[in-house]
Amino acid sequence: MVIRRFPWIRQSLVIWHKELRIEFRTRFAYSTLLMFAVTTLITISFSVGGFVPDSDITAALLWIILFFSAMAGLGRTFVQEEEKKTITALKMAVAPEPVFLGKYFFNVTLLCSLTVLVVPLFLVLLNQSVPLWAPFLTTVFLGALGLAGASTIIAAIVAKTEAKSAMMTILAFPVLVPLLLATINATRICLAGAPGTAPTTELLLLLFYNGAVVTASLLLFEYIWNE
């Protein structure tokens, strides 16, 4: 019923399904994300050895890994359409907004599946306990959503530039600073687990950040897509 009334949703799901199907066959983006995350994680775990870093450092390390993994793997969504010249066929068939949403859903799927693997591994390798599980999982989920949202719109901009791989991190960092500060702080609170504390402000900030990124992206995407 909802899908029939909002064709964007149906079209976005068709694009999301196509992205998953191609990714399942090539495994390009997921391999990049996973390899980057796992190698960085193992390097960190070797460097700290048996030492258990405090929650400030652990929180920062977790989001550094997720940020750079996202930059390495999520930027390809639009670049591939440009490089393989499939963008014209897509532009001729569908409005810009469902394309953004479909790619966003795909990036969310990739990043969420990465966090499902990497976060437990991270906690085990760094010998870290999580006293506040529910807020911690909410932080990771909202952080992954925000990373995926900002990465998707920036990937669309980067696909139009010459130095694609370098531009992704450069353009994404200022956009992602509020998200990273909020997620690191929320993660730190969850890992420290002081009695009576909860990262309520940070979680609200993440919620609004996600809403703002998706709304702004939907408004701006048509101009980027038709450039």
Binding site: R21, I22, R25, K84, T88, A89, M92
Partner: peptide, 10 residues
């Protein structure tokens, strides 16, 4: 058109 391609992985 020559500059229109379809998805090679499908």
């Amino acid at each position: 058109a020559p500059d229109l391609e379809l998805y090679g992985e499908l």
